[in-house]
Design a protein around this nucleic acid. Structure first.
Lengths: 352, 352
DNA sequence: CTGTTAGCGCATTCAA
DNA sequence: TTGAATGCGCTAACAG
């Protein structure tokens, strides 16, 4: 018998090294092998333990995650749902999440919805099928009752199957990592007011996103508190992209040439605004027009001029989101992550 | 009976809706249910098919991926191994990969090594445990024989288990998406030469990365072909980060004040170089110093001044990488993705 | 076209 | 402490 293999079919030639084989090789039962290789509790004798470990190493054993998942009905993967991983906002969150995931020995599966709420629901469902241990919703939700309800239903089903859920920013899902969009926006608006600006414009992202609504609300709140006016025609909605920002800025100035400062609702859009104002419109920043961004993504400091923006601790938010779903994290109230206005070169006093 | 849940423990209250239950509910065998719900082939009668579909919908059935994976020993997840997802280079690749993955109905699991080659090996092993259908290596390899061999061994094992492998850029693994680092670098260097620069400096990434070596080789090849000189002291290695670029530039100019142009081996470093040259050293770009980057990440155009750089079709590379491992993609020779020099504002003729 | 049956690899009672 | 046996949910022959 030159070949120890006995069973019939193909697939399992010498290929798959299973617990079974390790057990045989070590001369123990598969239960024992399982205990030393996977079981946390040390209830195996020193000698057998060594034998099993040696066998596993010799054979190059690698556990079969799907099999384990099936047997214990739980995996070590967490799903992260973002809009677009190429967007530095989400990339930062993902980086933080992955860092924390590593600490907790979790794998991160990323799904990009490209802004499609239907896809978000579909991905949660898919993650449920994967029996992911948790799903992290990183993107902003949309203010649509139907969509929200359907997502909630899907999340409930996910939880019913034993999964955990957490999200970045408040969106009606518990637990979540609080991000003070409103407060940050208020601060940015206030800064502009203090610089003497009275006629400001807002370059906003998609109108349906609750993040956009929150930031906008913060600006409006601060502005009216200060006694300013912000007519709707000075608020332009567009995609959360560079070109979205550029086009929105162009539209804004076409309609309201007197605007002295513009608040972009994220840094990527701000980059587009800067390009529009300086290159297309030929106005100087900040001498003629001030620009403020939101998020403080890494490249904000390198824009021309460097961008004044509201800093959001994105990486930390990502980390916290996985902490929330890792171990028995208490669903205790989270201290909101600090937002801060980072004043750089794109803002200045209103032209006298 | 206000509460339909009955069974004892926790987890499996009304929770787990299995194929089994769907089959019962529909009055068919579980095999039939499986066929209509998962089997691609249409070998089920119209009536039963409908019954099963209705039952599945009514019960809210979601297939159990781990169970499927175990039974058919294959999953629909592909692993993507990157250095750092927050780096726009990898974010772009990931975005492309995810787009293609969606088309092929694959899920993408991302692992970040943060530049640690050991972690890369560990992740491949972990992906093997997950029985991932494929792993995509997006990061550059290091020029270390031991590491390379161990990674190769792990990849072979992965393949032996039926997994597919592909990577971005040549690194001794087949198949791969060719990226002409060398050619791009040659083009950038040539451009500088033509602008009259003779004393150039290179701000390079980690010396061990083969990508760095390739780009550097391209520069050296072009330069010596043109008749220029590039002494080692004008080549500085640092991290592939903004601060790495900034510090490297500072060091470079401290040692070689006469340099008239610097080639940064990626755009993120170039941002740091720009900051160092203009803000720290107070020299004008491009009047006094020209700067060239590499990759053409999204923010390159927004730098101050806009960055001349070598464009690499990163998203497309990501897409191609998953195409390579999807369906029965022929391991045919790939036409190298086109690289192009994008001339913008950071380069100009040498000061006369 | 449909049902029966035998695993897939592992965790986990339950005995020993 | 260790082993034997059972089942996780599903797929894939194989038979009818």
């Amino acid at each position: 018998m030159p070949n120890p293999r006995s069973t019939t079919r193909a697939t399992r030639s010498t290929g798959a090294v299973t617990l079974q084989r390790v057990a045989e090789h070590a001369g123990v039962s598969i239960a024992t092998a399982s205990r030393v290789l996977h079981g946390g509790t040390r209830t195996v004798g020193e000698e057998l333990r060594r034998k099993v470990e040696d066998a596993a190493r010799d054979l190059g054993y690698v556990s079969n995650a799907p099999a384990q998942a099936l047997a214990r009905s739980s995996t070590s993967v967490v799903g992260l749902v973002v809009h677009d991983i190429a967007d530095p906002y989400f990339a930062a969150i993902a980086a933080g999440a992955m860092r924390a995931a590593k600490r907790h020995r979790l794998m991160v599966m990323i799904a990009a919805t490209f802004g499609d709420p239907e896809l978000e629901i579909e991905y949660v469902r898919s993650l449920r099928a994967q029996r992911a241990r948790a799903v992290l919703l990183a993107g902003s939700g949309v203010a649509d009752p139907d969509l929200t309800a359907r997502l909630a239903a899907e999340l409930d089903a996910f939880r019913a199957d034993g999964g955990r859920v957490s999200c970045i920013g408040e969106r009606g899902v518990e637990p979540y990592v609080p991000l003070d969009h409103t407060g940050g926006a208020e601060r940015a608006a206030t800064e502009l007011w203090q610089l003497g600006h009275r006629r400001i414009g807002v370059v906003a992202g998609p109108e349906g996103l609750v993040t956009v609504q929150r930031r906008l609300a913060g600006i409006r709140a601060a502005w009216s508190r200060l006694g300013g006016e912000l007519p709707d025609r000075r608020v332009v909605f567009a995609d959360f992209t560079r070109s979205g920002g550029r086009e929105a800025a162009l539209g804004l100035f076409a309609a309201e040439p007197g605007v002295t400062a513009v608040l972009a609702l994220n840094d990527v859009m701000a980059a587009g605004v800067l390009a529009a104002v300086q290159d297309d419109l030929g106005r100087r920043v900040p001498e003629e027009v001030s620009v403020v961004g939101f998020d403080d993504v890494p490249f904000a400091v390198d824009l021309r001029p460097s961008l004044t923006t509201v800093r959001l601790p994105l990486e930390e938010a990502g980390e916290r989101a996985v902490q929330l779903i890792a171990d028995g994290a208490s669903p205790a109230r989270q201290a909101p992550l600090g937002v801060a206005l980072v004043v750089r070169g794109s803002t200045g006093p209103v032209a006298g």
